Amino acid sequence: MDEEYTINTTSAITSSLYYKSGTASSIPNIVEHVNQVNSDKTYIIIRSVSDNFYSFFNKKYRYYIVKKTNQQVVSFETEKEFVAECQKLNIFPKLKSLDKFDWYNREEAY
């Protein structure tokens, strides 16, 4: 994703956001079940499947805002709350599926 954050896909249905610090074995998992993502210089925004893969079919999602400088994570139960906080923080990127990003497709090739 960038120099400090990566999204790793561990199966056909599971992707997680990680912060790259320290050794490979100590990379903290920040958000699991990432379904859509985007970022700007300050924040990463995420939509994740709330409980498990079947939540995807039932449209049960959680939304997250991750502050890049300190890995602070704020989560939201509803899209309405999430959008309101994005507007308050002047976060304007739109959420996109992982396969829409060049870095994701490039990482999958390895």
Rank of each mutant, 00 (worst) to 15 (best):
F76G: 07
S11F: 05
K41G: 09
R62W: 01
M1S: 11
V66S: 07
S39M: 11
D102H: 09
P28E: 07
S55N: 08
L17H: 12
S15Q: 12
R47S: 11
Y18K: 15
Y110Q: 03
V37K: 06
S50V: 02
Q71I: 05
E4C: 05
Y18P: 09
S21I: 13
T23G: 11
N90K: 15
F53Y: 12
F53I: 03
S16V: 03
T42D: 13
N70Q: 07
R106A: 03
N29H: 04
F82S: 04
S50C: 10
I13Y: 14
S97A: 12
E32A: 13
S21G: 10
F56S: 03
P28R: 07
F92S: 15
F56G: 01
F82Y: 13
Q71A: 10
K94T: 10
K96L: 09
I30W: 10
V66M: 05
C86V: 00
K59Y: 01
N29D: 07
Y63F: 15
E3R: 14
D102P: 01
V49C: 14
D102L: 08
N8T: 08
F92T: 15
K67Y: 06
D102F: 11
I45V: 14
D51H: 12
I7T: 06
K41N: 14
F82M: 04
A84P: 01
N38K: 04
Y61P: 03
S39W: 13
D102M: 02
A84C: 00
W103Q: 01
V37Q: 05
Y104R: 02
T10S: 12
K59T: 00
S21M: 12
N105A: 00
E108C: 06
K100H: 10
Y18M: 09
S75H: 12
S16N: 13
Y5G: 05
E85Y: 02
Y18N: 13
L95S: 12
Q87E: 15
H33A: 09
H33E: 09
Y63D: 02
P93H: 10
N8E: 12
N58A: 03
R106S: 04
F76D: 04
K59Q: 04
Y19M: 04
S26C: 04
L89P: 06
V49R: 14
T23N: 15
A109H: 01
V31S: 09
Q36H: 07
S75L: 05
A12S: 10
V37R: 05
F76Q: 06
E107L: 04
E107F: 01
V83D: 08
F56C: 00
D51R: 12
